[in-house]
Nucleic acid binder design. Structure first.
Lengths: 210, 210
DNA sequence: GGGCTTTCTTGACACTGTCAAGATCCGGAA
DNA sequence: TTCCGGATCTTGACAGTGTCAAGAAAGCCC
């Protein structure tokens, strides 16, 4: 609040250097913090700049504009997302069904815990989703899901693309519609349906899901 | 007649309260047109007001704020959405599978053709999804899907809530991830998977989907 | 007609992204 | 070392946004 600007001739002390050092990464980190703290609408170029300790126009030298920053944020978020799914998979044991369930649990939990990030990753209109770096990072996340689908392929040992799409759509829809959220969106029925039951219904033979 | 152009709806004949008649409805209609024409970010209070032919602050007397307008727009959009699904259902014949496929086709087509509206309906952060009118309208849309799921219930003739959630999540995820879009989002695999195959895999006994 | 309410306009404010111009500082060349 | 180019950051401005306050215009009821 009491922001006393330092005199120009103060030689010693932690004066912020004119060159930040790694402002690009600092802006991405600040953006992620803002999204986590304030939701999808909490990210602003000026707020990210302020959080990184630079003036409001400084980001222009590292990002062509807000869409460019959003694309970088979405890319980094997909890396975090992959990590979350991977961690959930590793904690789920070796059984194929448990592993796929674990990954989906990680997927849903990430969507709930980082709703702002998730919105930027999948929904923000001005993210350039044809950006090569973004594409490769998001496909890494998709590969995590695909790998876990492999044991359930109907063309085993070849991948079953139809199943991959079905699982991805199912878990994404479940997460986005808020069925797994602690704070449901409004039209969530009660009792809240467990995702694993839905998943088994898709990947296991009929009758084995119960 | 030197009459100003009428707003979209005419409730009670020629008697119109002078100035602009039903500005509230005109603003909702203008908002929907803006969303359809310019996408999710095309809707602005000021642009909607301009399109309705009033000054930028006029909407304040009909909507508490932008979130309130968005809630009204989302509510009206859900009515259109229900109509689209219903129409697709009626054009699909009497077979239960064809009927469910038809509804899902309507779901996906609406999401693609009205991406801006769809965004407001399901994703816009500041829509009040606990609004009673919104709730009842959105639940009418859900009921359309639920009814079509009934023939596939495992507890027939009682509804199978798990299946309803699964189908809803599946079709929503498929639509949102852009698998059915003409202009895919970027990570869409090729060849584009047909939704009906995914759906049959969920609702029919294993082996019957091929 | 006189008052009252609703409806709409005008004007202002803080906030946003973006651009232009200038200040500052790093790194390499002379 | 000194000097200069260019990268980096700041300041200031602009149009656009949502929202609020104050005032004008029109309908309604007495």
């Amino acid at each position: 609040m009491s922001e006393t600007p330092k005199p120009a001739d103060s030689l010693s002390g932690p004066v912020r250097p004119h060159h930040h050092g790694n402002l690009r990464q600092a802006l991405i980190t600040a953006s992620i913090q803002l999204l986590d703290a304030e939701g999808a609408s909490g990210l602003t170029l000026r707020k990210a700049a302020a959080r990184a300790g630079v003036s409001h126009a400084a980001p222009a030298h590292h990002f062509a504009g807000l869409p460019d920053l959003l694309t970088a944020v979405a890319t980094e978020a997909f890396a975090l997302f992959t990590g979350a799914m991977r961690e959930a998979r590793q904690g789920a044991g070796d059984d194929p069904t448990a592993r796929l369930e674990g990954i989906c649990r990680g997927y849903i939990r990430f969507a709930n815990d980082h709703a702002g990030l998730f919105h930027v990753m999948f929904l923000a209109a001005d993210v350039d989703r044809s950006n090569p770096t973004f594409l490769s990072t998001s496909e890494t996340a998709y590969a995590e899901l695909r790998l876990a689908c492999l044991p359930f392929s109907r063309q085993a040992p070849d991948p079953d693309q139809q199943l991959e799409i079905a699982v991805w759509s199912l878990v994404h829809g479940y997460a986005v519609l808020g069925f797994g959220a602690c704070d449901p969106k409004g039209f969530t029925p009660t009792p809240r349906p467990d995702f694993n039951g839905l998943l088994r219904r898709l990947v296991l033979p009929a009758g084995a899901a119960d």
